[in-house]
């Protein structure tokens, strides 16, 4: 436990240093946040524009879609803010930088996470929270708690997939394309009612790549739409726990692969 507290404290310190670094390029910081908002906003702008002409997507109203979008985006931001440096793992391995990380007396994952602050991701968080608050349906205290747990759980689902795929970089050295594609699937498909995509794709987005569990499944619980899901209602209610389980699993994979890491020697 003391080890974890120490790691977290050092993480916070390193992250503050990264933040100071990012603040040196102020204009780029502002534009970066704007780009983050625009990137995520352009996806929602699509929904907003088409729903001027069409009243519903897969039976969901604009407000319901906005809520789903807000949940997905907030979860995504919570994942990507601490984990954005993971994207550079291929490079760290190829350049032999990872050797340096492994020599320092701090959890390697924490060191990698603290490398850089994802500036654009602050924009994601901003856009996500705004959508979530604006579109929030009237919820009781228990539902609010479920919503919070679900957002954290959703972040962990995405983090788990990302970490598990990144672990491959420790062995095969070129994972960027696959990881970018998985990220893309989460971002693009996660914000729609899955029933829109038809049986096979819905199945794949639920059980092969757990995109549905980031927001669609918990949002269905909160919007009283569990009848439409392709998983039983109790599973839907337990969806926030899935994130915890998947992340624990992904961390095991990561540690296992790290033990097999061989430096490229450059």
């Amino acid at each position: 436990m003391a080890e974890v507290v120490r790691a977290l404290r050092l993480y916070w310190r390193l992250q503050r240093a990264a933040m100071r670094g990012a603040l040196q390029y102020r204009l780029n910081l502002v534009i970066g946040i704007a780009a983050g908002v625009a990137y995520q906003g352009s996806g929602f702008a699509f929904v907003w524009v088409v729903m001027h002409t069409f009243p519903a997507v897969g039976g969901w109203s604009l407000r319901e879609i906005a809520f789903l979008y807000g949940m997905r985006l907030t979860a995504h931001a919570l994942y990507v803010l601490p984990f954005s440096s993971l994207i550079g793992l291929d490079w760290l391995v190829r350049e032999g930088e990872l050797d340096r990380v492994l020599l320092r007396p701090l959890n390697p994952l924490v060191q990698i996470m603290a490398k850089r602050l994802g500036v654009g991701q602050l924009g994601d968080l901003l856009a996500g929270l705004v959508l979530l608050v604006v579109a929030l349906p009237p919820l009781g205290p228990a539902s609010i708690l479920f919503c919070l747990a679900a957002v954290v759980g959703g972040a962990l689902v995405e983090a788990a997939v990302s970490l598990a795929l990144a672990s491959l970089a420790l062995r095969t050295w070129n994972t960027l394309g696959v990881r970018a594609f998985a990220d893309d699937l989460f971002s693009k498909f996660g914000s729609y009612p899955m029933s829109v995509f038809g049986g096979a794709a819905q199945w794949a987005l639920t059980f092969v790549l757990p995109v549905a569990f980031v927001a669609y499944v918990p949002a269905s619980v909160l919007l009283d739409r569990t009848g439409e899901l392709n998983v039983p209602a109790p599973v839907a209610y337990g969806s926030p726990l899935l994130g915890v389980a998947l992340f624990a699993l992904a961390y095991r994979i990561w540690s296992r692969q790290l033990r097999h890491y061989q430096s490229t020697g450059t």
């Binding site: 390029y25 780009a35 625009a38 990137y39 500036v119």
Partner: peptide, 16 residues
């Protein structure tokens, strides 16, 4: 000197 964010923004706006 730093156009990473501008070009991302441009790509999004132009595609939209």
């Amino acid at each position: 000197l730093e156009t990473g964010a501008i070009s991302l923004l441009y790509r999004l706006v132009s595609h939209f």
